[in-house]
């Protein structure tokens, strides 16, 4: 009886661990999609309405879902404080803060950082180009992320459960 309970515990523990890894793979495409739609909103705000950047980012933060909203809200708030920092510094700091919480990989971060180097500092046409470029790059990353998600989500779920079973059988 004790053995059975122990075995169940081992299987559920490894199963949960597998599920946690799988979840990171499953979350990345969701987050990338949110970022893409956020950038599209930002593009509209900037190129059609010419909303000042802090206000535009705030509007995006209100419309986009968790967790991406956290990033935009932070940038909007810091820019609104007028601490004398450039938008690039604020954007990059917020990215570093957001990255550990997110399911994004370094490559995705690089795309967003590239956008941060240019955000707000040129005319409307140019801003539109930079935002569209970043959105396109994120779409490519999204396709790759979806592919790896479809492979890895199932795999890690199985690895978790089956790995647990193997340990249990070996110990039995």
């Amino acid at each position: 009886m004790l053995k059975l309970i122990g075995g169940l515990l081992v299987v559920s523990a490894t199963g949960l661990a597998g599920w946690a890894v799988a979840r990171v793979y499953a979350r990345r495409p969701v987050e990338l999609r949110l970022f893409i739609s956020a950038l599209q909103m930002l593009e509209t705000e900037i190129t059609y309405v010419a909303t000042p950047l802090p206000d535009a980012l705030d509007r995006v933060a209100q419309q986009v879902e968790f967790p991406v909203a956290l990033f935009f809200r932070r940038v909007a708030r810091e820019l609104g404080q007028q601490a004398g920092c450039s938008a690039r510094e604020v954007w990059n700091r917020a990215l570093e803060w957001y990255f550990p919480k997110s399911a994004l990989v370094r490559n995705d971060l690089g795309i967003l950082r590239g956008l941060g180097n240019n955000i707000g500092i040129s005319d409307r046409d140019d801003q539109g180009k930079h935002l569209r470029l970043a959105a396109e790059q994120l779409k490519m990353a999204l396709a790759a992320a979806e592919e790896s998600a479809s492979k890895n989500v199932k795999m890690w779920n199985y690895i978790g459960l089956l790995g647990g079973l193997i340990i249990v059988l070996a110990l039995y």
């Binding site: 010419a50 000042p52 450039s86 938008a87 040129s122």
Partner: peptide, 12 residues
């Protein structure tokens, strides 16, 4: 950036 409110595009 500060005088433009980080929005050069809004000051054409």
């Amino acid at each position: 950036q500060n005088i433009s409110g980080h929005s050069i595009y809004a000051l054409e």
